Simulated assay, not measured.
Amino acid sequence: MAWVFLLVASMLEPAWATAIKQSDGLTKPWPSVLGLSGASISVLFLTFAMKDLPAGTAYAVFVGLGAVGVVAAGAVWLGESLTLPRLVFLSLILIGVIGLHFVDDGSSTTPSLAP
C-alpha cells in the first residue's frame, strides 16, 4: 500500500506545481489555494508512504516522478518546450525511479533508539 500512497503523492505534484505557477507569486487567490492545498495533500500521502518505505527511496521516487510529471504538465498546459535533451534526462530519472522500486526490500530502515 505504501507504493500506492507514493504514486498518489507523486501524481498530485504536477497539479499543485502547475497551480502555483498560475498563481503569479501567490497573488491570484484560487490558483494559490489549489496549489497550497494540493501540496499539503501530496506531502500527507508521502508521509503515509514513508511509514513503510525507506525515507531516501520514498523521497527520491516522489521527487523524480513529480519532476517528470511537472515537465509533462508544463508542456501540455503551459506551452513549455520538450527538447530531446530534456526527454533523455527525464528518461534517466524514470530509470532511476524504476530501479529504486525493484531494489526496495519493503522493510523500513528507521533506526531504533533502544540498545
Rank of each mutant, 00 (worst) to 15 (best):
G64M: 00
L6Y: 02
L82T: 02
V70A: 12
S42P: 06
A72R: 09
P111A: 05
L46W: 04
L100T: 03
P54M: 01
T47S: 14
D105P: 11
L53D: 06
S32L: 07
G96I: 00
A39E: 03
A72T: 13
V71N: 00
I98E: 00
L100D: 02
K21V: 02
W16C: 02
R86D: 00
S42F: 04
S112D: 13
F102G: 14
P54E: 12
T109H: 13
V68K: 02
G38H: 13
V63K: 05
Q22R: 09
I98Y: 01
I20G: 10
Y59V: 09
V63S: 15
M1T: 11
L84F: 09
L34E: 05
V43R: 10
M50Y: 08
G106E: 04
F5V: 01
K28I: 10
I98T: 04
V43C: 05
L84C: 03
A73G: 03
P31H: 06
W3E: 01
G56Q: 08
P54N: 08
A75Q: 02
V43I: 14
L26G: 13
F102E: 08
F89I: 11
G99I: 03
V71A: 14
A49V: 12
A67F: 12
P85H: 01
L46M: 10
I98L: 03
G69M: 02
L46D: 06
D104M: 08
A58K: 06
V97Y: 08
L34S: 11
F102C: 12
S40C: 14
W3H: 00
E13G: 13
G74Q: 01
F89T: 12
S108H: 07
L46P: 04
I95M: 07
P115K: 12
S40P: 06
G56S: 09
D52F: 06
L65I: 15
T110C: 00
P31F: 03
I95V: 15
